[in-house]
């Protein structure tokens, strides 16, 4: 307490904070949700099974790039050949993971919830020193835009997966099942999450000094700016959505539930 709020000259109050509200609830929820997601996704990535059934591909395994993938799921072929013997999911998860890890919103969340820097506003943090994002590895946060563009490719692939899901098990177009809707919702949530991204906002127009000279980009920026305040919401919805989507595919693949066809 000699540093920070206890530094010489500041009002001697003697406690880390005087907040009377339940400020710890929000970081606690973040910890629980994020840890659950990590646990579930790790288990699923190593499970290496039940990710494809009847034209439904789990988002954790799409695009499936290793030879071990079923041909219908390997929409981009199997460029990795057969040297890769682990789960094909591990080849691709790094990109969405990187996108979320460097996301401006998730950064806030895990700096608060895990690093307690700070846990909540005006609650003193426990660290002696703080240098922020000025050193490695945190300088890598600046690569967010690359992950954003990579994320867009994934969105396209997962959208394609959702379209494929309009086939019935016999491979005929024009059918829709609960699985179709699940994949479709997943794709939409991911698009909303990507399009509301701060790097996206910068790229489409935020970097300009004169909007008036670029009316189209200003329009796009305005559109992204209306989504941007909802970025946190989309971040959570799409995260939970992707896990639930995988769980649905897995449940169908294991036969625990039947994928109900609407038409």
């Amino acid at each position: 307490m000699e540093n920070g709020v206890g530094a010489p000259g500041r009002a001697k109050i003697g406690v880390r904070h005087l907040r009377t509200d339940k400020w710890w609830i929000s970081p606690l929820i973040s910890v629980v949700v994020l840890l659950s997601f990590i646990a579930y996704s790790t288990w699923r990535a190593f499970e290496n099974d039940f990710y494809y059934v009847d034209h439904l591909v789990s988002p954790f395994y799409s695009p499936c790039l290793a030879t071990s993938c079923p041909p219908e799921a390997a929409i981009l072929g199997t460029p990795f050949g057969d040297w890769w013997t682990l789960s094909p999911a591990l080849l691709i998860l790094v990109f969405p993971l990187g996108f979320r890890l460097t996301c401006y919103y998730y950064r806030k969340t895990y700096y608060r919830a895990f690093w307690m820097s700070p846990s909540a506003c005006a609650v003193a943090e426990p660290h002696k020193k703080y240098t922020g994002e000025t050193r490695q590895p945190l300088l890598l946060q600046n690569s967010h835009r690359y992950f954003f563009f990579a994320g867009l490719i994934f969105n396209i692939i997962l959208t394609y997966d959702a379209i494929i899901a309009f086939k019935n098990p016999a491979g005929e177009w024009g059918h829709m099942s609960v699985g179709t809707l699940v994949l479709l919702a997943n794709a939409i949530f991911l698009w909303m999450y990507s399009l509301s991204c701060h790097s996206c906002r910068h790229a489409v127009g935020g970097r300009l000094k004169h909007f008036s000279a670029h009316p189209f980009r200003y329009k796009m920026w305005t559109f992204v700016s209306t989504l941007n305040p909802h970025h946190p919401k989309f971040a959570w919805v799409s995260l939970i959505g992707v896990a639930l989507c995988d769980l649905y595919v897995r449940s169908v693949a294991t036969g625990q539930i039947t994928n109900f066809y609407i038409f």
Binding site: Y104, S117, P118, C121, A122, G132, E133, T134
Partner: peptide
């Protein structure tokens, strides 16, 4: 010191 900010939004 912009890089010091860890965007925790307080």
């Amino acid at each position: 010191g912009l890089g010091m900010c860890n965007i925790t939004k307080c």
